[in-house]
Design a protein around this nucleic acid. Sequence first.
DNA 1: ATTAGCACTCTTATCATCAGAGTGCTAATG
DNA 2: CATTAGCACTCTGATGATAAGAGTGCTAAT
Lengths: 347, 347
Amino acid sequence: MITLTERQSLILKAIVRDYTEGGNPVGSKSLVQELPMKVSSATIRNEMARLEDLGLIVKTHLSSGRIPSIKGYRYYVDHILKPEKVDGQDLKVIQHSLGGEFHKIDEIVAQSADILSQLTSYTTFTLRPELKDSRLSGFRLVPLGNHQVMAILVTNNGDVENQTFTIPNDLTGDELEPVVRFIDDQLIGLPLQDVLRKLQKEIPLKLAKYLQDPDGFLDIFGSVLSKAASERFYVGGKLNLFNYTNQQNPKELQSLYSLLDQTDSLANVIGPPGQHIQVRIGNEITNDLLKDYSLITATYDVDRHGKGMIAILGPTAMPYSRMIGLMGAFQRELARKLLDYYRYFDE
Amino acid sequence: MITLTERQSLILKAIVRDYTEGGNPVGSKSLVQELPMKVSSATIRNEMARLEDLGLIVKTHLSSGRIPSIKGYRYYVDHILKPEKVDGQDLKVIQHSLGGEFHKIDEIVAQSADILSQLTSYTTFTLRPELKDSRLSGFRLVPLGNHQVMAILVTNNGDVENQTFTIPNDLTGDELEPVVRFIDDQLIGLPLQDVLRKLQKEIPLKLAKYLQDPDGFLDIFGSVLSKAASERFYVGGKLNLFNYTNQQNPKELQSLYSLLDQTDSLANVIGPPGQHIQVRIGNEITNDLLKDYSLITATYDVDRHGKGMIAILGPTAMPYSRMIGLMGAFQRELARKLLDYYRYFDE
DNA sequence: ATTAGCACTCTTATCATCAGAGTGCTAATG
DNA sequence: CATTAGCACTCTGATGATAAGAGTGCTAAT
């Protein structure tokens, strides 16, 4: 366990701040002016040598200034940093952007990714509240004529999912009615997970009484059901990658960029909702492509409607203090907005 | 009007091919070996000087080899190139990818952009057949409970558009029925454009007889209607940009990349459906960001269901011959597939 | 414990040099 | 007259030398 003296701590803090803002290695002379106490550059050099021994800062070459190591950022984040109070202007932007009218949870969560990316100039990820407690609350089959039927599924959270299918011969509403009633009788009120399970086993058998050829219908129902039960993951500010990357190699840039389209890989990296706010720096991120970046994740809690996540991806040299303050504020605002939204469907 | 001798034509062709394949300026010595006739490098140099006077090829510096100018590519495309017969393997890929079952036109057209980008390694655009002749063939309002209603709109082409709305107080199907019947009576069978027009004028007045507060409903109907009437534009292989760009500047790359997300700007560049296959090279493209690239557009024709477009964006140094062959084949296959699809709704 | 001073290291920019590739021109050739 | 061999000339790109600037580590003095 590393313990730093007051002065060492101040020096590390100054190095992190300087490097984060200016992007250049920090030398002893420039630190003289920035530190609150009056010391010479030689003293600072001595202290820096100790910090280097501890592995908190490194040189880029033998006689260069120092930059924080991953361990240094870690120490800074864990022991030195204080979350910055969120800027009043930023808070207004958040509240205003979330204040509009939305028709879907997913719209809110997707928009959150965009706002957050605008505020930070980084890339952001948002995950809607977990669906594990979602229950099936309605199912409809709407014949549209022209060999087409739309299947609509509603959950108790107000989520609506639909899909249109082409069928061989036109059906009327009357023919579909017994099927819908069967679903209503047997499955309404069950968690989606249970419905998915039953779909594999009992339902096909029972349904055979109502329909001669249940396969087609089962495909339709299964398809729209799994659409509703899948996790939804949103990415904001993909293009911002170009602002904060120091990757020059176009090949690397491309694979990095395409990672941002692989929502399943990313969902793994972000991990399941946890506690509060987490900072992962450099190789602490479980994806080699991101080993030169930092990831801040925050879990927001919408009571019994589950937990969701927001995250930002940026350079290791990011203004952690401001970012963490911002995440905290966003987390609260988003949770509030969603609670508000759900209130409709709770009555 | 430029006319080239047989030999000059062969030299230009060889320069285009060499540069397209190798990416390096082409010198007189390397051409000696590639030309079918037996001439010395000095002769070729003389011919090249003439081609340069005509503005068909240029030097990158005083003593470099030559590369085709935009005018040179133009001449090559217009007078020399023969469309390459499409590779059997490629044709199979196209037919197989379009062979599956689709539930929507837009799925087919979107998938086309992806296939084409895979086959070419470039960026591709597709535009669904024009909707100007689309007519309204059905409208539904489905109450979902929980303050939600889904509006569904169907056109005679089988296109289905829907949107879910949150409403202040729950309505039953009975209350919505007169509205739906009103729409059915007054608007079914009309072109979407006419419906849009009427929505501005007569409808609000007439509707007042059925509903106390028609504004909410008009918003809903208008929203889903304009969704159905809007042009749909798909982009494939955005990431391929990194393969063929020679842009190094990250700022430029970023604005180029973000252009690929602005479907309306792009739709303008691609232009309305025209005749056959068109090649636009460098500054012939009406967008300054694309002045170092080439665009090949092709119009496909689905009889009375209108015309759509496919396009590929690549470097000016692209294998035009192969690309044009490919576009021709794709154009035919796509038109066939869509005719097939529409046959359902024509009965 | 702190500091001044200095030798040392490494980066970065600038400049000269040189081989390689290609051209244009001239004079010779069929 | 078209073609060709030969040669001087130009430009690129790689390599290496040089010098200024920034920063360090160490020593000796305070």
